[in-house]
Amino acid sequence: MSADLTELYQQVILDHNRRPRNRGKLPTANRVAHGDNPSCGDQCSVYLRMDGDRIAEISFDGSGCAISQASASLMTTQAKGKTGPAVHALYKNFHNIVTTGNAPEEISDLAAFAGVHSFPARIKCATLGWHAALEAMKSDPLPTTTESHLD
């Protein structure tokens, strides 16, 4: 396997793809947003329970390639407990990693996505879940009886 491909499919990514974290609908969600990659059909919904400006709970649901699913899974683990501005800052770092391949030392797990930059067509796979999360934070709160929305 080439160095580029080994870089792309890091162990961390494979692990999140096989055993996604925080996957499925969140019954207590008060925000939701859906992201699509129309060209490839990848889909990702992100569910949030915002507590003020803080993400108290988060989950994702969807289908797509290993990169998109692992990235959404890892995103949920990183965003949980953070405030809106902190998630925006994280996304900025992540975007920088996948577009340049340069990962600052302190950004441990997100650095696994550095290999994406050698595959420009896959950048939108890696950012799909993040976009849905940022959209969800901006979205209007769901009505308090959320069940019908989440079915």
């Binding site: 797509g64 390639c65 595959f119």
Partner: peptide, 9 residues
């Protein structure tokens, strides 16, 4: 295994 991962490989 998703189609895009197959195509990349």
């Amino acid at each position: 295994v998703h189609a895009h991962d197959i195509v990349t490989f």
